[in-house]
Design a protein around this nucleic acid. Structure first.
Length: 724
DNA sequence: GCGACATTGTTTTTT
DNA sequence: ACAATGTCGC
């Protein structure tokens, strides 16, 4: 050990994981247990104490954000350059391998990546080519089928299907889709992983090389790995590398995407004599929040078992609010946020979490009314916007005109008179000949089989691409983007449009130019084709949620899934209702129900100091007013951890709620000069703050939170409150 | 090719 | 309810 031990202030378990000898290690890291710190420290330990060099280490994560954070922390911690260290996402690292060994992987040098949207479009084309009606053979289902097989590592030839039923057809679609990708020289997300696995598996020399190179492999969020990812790690580690898998089975929430929690259980079997370390000390939440979350998760049966504990304060109880409807719920959230702001709580430390994106609308409206700044995280990413993808498609064609996906997207956009008829002719023949659209279009033009008008239009497009291609060779990345926007007519197309939406699109295209410029400056790759190629890959793999740059402090709104890995002092978990969370879809399947419960667990453990959970008795869903019981998850948390504020009870009857406007309404002020958030003094309860008001005149009631006496509902006329 | 109407679905979405 | 697609007619 060096004189000042950088690992000294780790707790015992963390220390054990970080300073373990070179052996396989499974770290079961509970929420808020300092997982990232352990991961980073372990890398430092491997280098500083066990004498590994950075290039002998690989650290894999799922998100670019996690990878970036890890890289930054390693850079801070380690004295030497970490350039040789492989830190990245599964997709990022695999992509790198494929680029490097594209010939062995049987890919063109400039292969491009299909995102989910590209993939779906391609599948639609494939379905059409097989004469399968989309109402009987939904494209999304085909996509799910294909991705599920790929995640399992199954090529069409491996897929076993019954001799009858839809399986056979889906398999045909899978085969045809694979062929289409091959011809176009493109790979989808799942393909990146699968192809890399096959590349290493089937090339002994290459595999030996990487097996010899990496002596330590670290994997983050291990519970989210799918079959192929697991197999890939296993393959790479086959040469004697030690693997450290870090994960939490209780936070597995991506089963629906092919993630296999079982991989955590399997680990100890497959990686011989793996040492297991449990990180159960939580540094994030209060004891009350933690106990509640623990109590909830014990309702899951298939667990490795783990109980989080903390040395921290007991903290406040969880405030559970039973709202009348979703509007009331939103109002409650906005009011409480307002009160907290008044008390000096930083608004940036507050988050509202919900099960599905559709729930954000009412919340937004309530926050807007209360003049509370907010930001919705997630949603449409920059590089996924239609106008951006249009531009990128032209850029893709300049690299590889045979990219059918890009070709299809922009061949007639902006419209240039190339109609369905012409395209169908090209498609059909191209498919029969097994060649890209680009080649077939040329061939058919030479054969002069199109009417003059169509032929001219088509020739115009082919010439445009050829011209762009030759121009781009000499241009910088930024110039290439500008050039493409001008020449393609995209710029003119959007310039001609009126309205806010068109304006937004123009701005986005301008931003694309800036993004290209910035990328160029950061990367500094010499070859212009390589630069473009890398930029396009970057766009697909890091679709870039444009983090609101340095805006004013705001409340964070996001789905529970999006909240994984984050923490906030104050968390509102809304929509805690049967049918919403857990969703109706998961009722009949115990496995899905358990995943929903884990999702709730993830949500609760995001909270550091104060957690609110709310449910509405009536919620408008798909245009229908529906009654909802409060979520079973709430029932599963012992009352001792909860502080229930059931405004909805009282003399409230179901009938009244049908007529929404007769339901008691909250307001900002009632006669007597009482206002929301105001401090008052009560003869018996002392000082308090008004949390809510309802009714008017003699019936006006107010909810007051008294210091030391909790919250009470009082009738204004009898309470004898004084303004403090 | 574009606007008007109809139909459809509607959990979550690291890459 | 509502948006986002798809289809049809000019």
């Amino acid at each position: 050990m060096t004189s000042h031990d950088p690992f000294a202030d780790l707790n015992e378990r963390q220390h054990e994981a970080v300073t373990a000898p070179m052996e396989h290690l499974l770290v079961l890291a509970g929420a808020g247990s300092g997982k990232t710190r352990v991961l980073v420290s372990r890398v430092a330990y491997l280098i500083a104490e066990l004498g590994l060099s950075p290039q002998e280490i690989m650290a894999v994560t799922f998100t670019n954000k996690a990878a970036g954070e890890m890289k930054a922390r390693l850079r801070d911690m380690l004295p030497m350059s970490i350039d040789g260290l492989w830190v990245g996402t599964f997709h990022g690292l695999c992509h790198r391998l494929l680029r490097q060994h594209h010939e062995l992987a049987n890919l063109p040098e400039q292969f491009q990546i299909l995102d989910s949207d590209d993939q779906l479009r391609t599948i639609k084309r494939v379905l059409a080519s097989l004469n399968l009606a989309t109402d009987q053979w939904p494209p999304r289902q085909a996509q799910a089928f294909i991705n599920a097989r790929k995640d399992e590592g199954l090529r069409p030839k491996h897929v076993k299907v019954q001799s009858y039923g839809p399986g056979r057809t889906w398999l045909q679609v899978y085969e045809a889709y694979e062929k289409a990708c091959l011809v176009a020289g493109v790979v989808d997300f799942a393909e990146i992983l699968l192809r890399t696995h096959e590349l290493l598996r089937d090339n002994e020399a290459l595999l030996k090389h990487y097996q010899a190179r990496f002596r330590a492999i670290l994997v983050d969020e291990f519970q989210d790995t799918n079959t192929v990812q697991y197999a890939w790690i296993q393959l790479l580690a086959g040469g004697g590398a030690t693997v450290m898998a870090v994960g939490d089975d209780d936070q597995s929430i991506y089963g629906w995407r092919g993630a296999k929690v079982e991989n955590i259980q399997r680990f100890s079997d497959d990686f011989e004599s793996a040492h297991v370390v449990r990180l159960e000390q939580n540094y994030r939440s209060t004891a009350n929040i933690l106990s509640a979350a623990n109590a909830l998760i014990t309702h899951n049966t298939s667990r490795l078992g783990k109980d989080l504990w903390t040395q921290g304060d007991q903290g406040e109880k969880i405030t559970v609010y039973g709202a009348l409807n979703e509007l009331d719920e939103a109002r409650f959230v906005a009011e409480r946020i307002g009160l907290l702001i008044d008390r000096g709580v930083n608004v940036d430390g507050m988050a509202i979490l919900y099960r599905s994106n559709a729930q954000s609308r009412v919340l937004e409206e309530a926050l807007l009314r209360s003049h509370i700044a907010y930001q919705i995280h997630g949603g449409m990413r920059f590089f996924e916007r239609a106008e951006i993808k249009d531009a990128l498609s032209y850029l893709r064609l300049t690299l590889n005109p045979e990219d059918d996906v890009a070709f299809e997207r922009v061949v007639n956009f902006p419209t240039r008179g190339i109609g369905e008829k012409t395209l169908e002719t090209i498609r059909t023949e191209a498919r029969i000949a097994g060649v890209p659209l680009w080649s077939m279009a040329h061939k058919q033009l030479d054969e002069a089989i199109f009417p003059a008008r169509a032929a001219n239009a088509l020739r115009g497009f082919l010439d445009l691409i050829a011209a762009l291609k030759s121009d781009c060779d000499t241009l910088t990345l930024e110039e290439q983007v500008r050039c493409v926007l001008e020449q393609s007519g995209l710029k003119a197309h959007f310039d001609a449009q009126k309205g806010d939406r068109a304006e937004a699109k123009r701005e986005n295209l301008d931003e694309l130019i800036s993004a290209a410029k910035q990328y160029e400056e950061e990367q500094g790759i010499q070859d212009s084709a390589e630069m473009l190629s890398e930029f396009l890959a970057h766009a697909s793999l890091e679709a870039g949620e444009h983090e609101a740059d340095a805006s004013e402090p705001h409340v964070h709104l996001m789905t529970l899934h999006a909240a994984k890995g984050l923490e906030f002092p104050v968390v509102f978990l809304v929509g805690m209702e049967e049918g919403v969370f857990p969703g109706r879809q998961s009722y009949d399947d115990e496995k899905r129900l358990e995943e929903e419960r884990r999702l709730c667990y993830v949500g609760m453990t995001r909270a550091m100091e104060k957690l609110f959970m709310s449910h509405a008795e009536i919620r408008r869903q798909h245009g229908r007013e529906e009654y909802h019981k409060s979520s079973r998850f709430l029932e599963e948390i012992p009352d001792t951890y909860l502080d229930e504020v059931r405004v909805g009870r009282r003399s409230y009857t179901p009938q009244a709620s049908f007529r929404a406007n007769t339901a008691p309404k909250f307001q900002d002020e009632v006669p007597g000069g009482f206002k929301l958030g105001q401090s008052v003094v009560h003869a018996k309860f002392g000082h308090g703050v008004i949390l809510a008001l309802e009714g008017s005149g003699a019936h006006a009631r107010l909810q007051v939170n008294f210091k030391g006496h909790g919250t009470k509902w009082l009738v204004a006329a009898y309470a004898n409150l004084e303004c403090a």
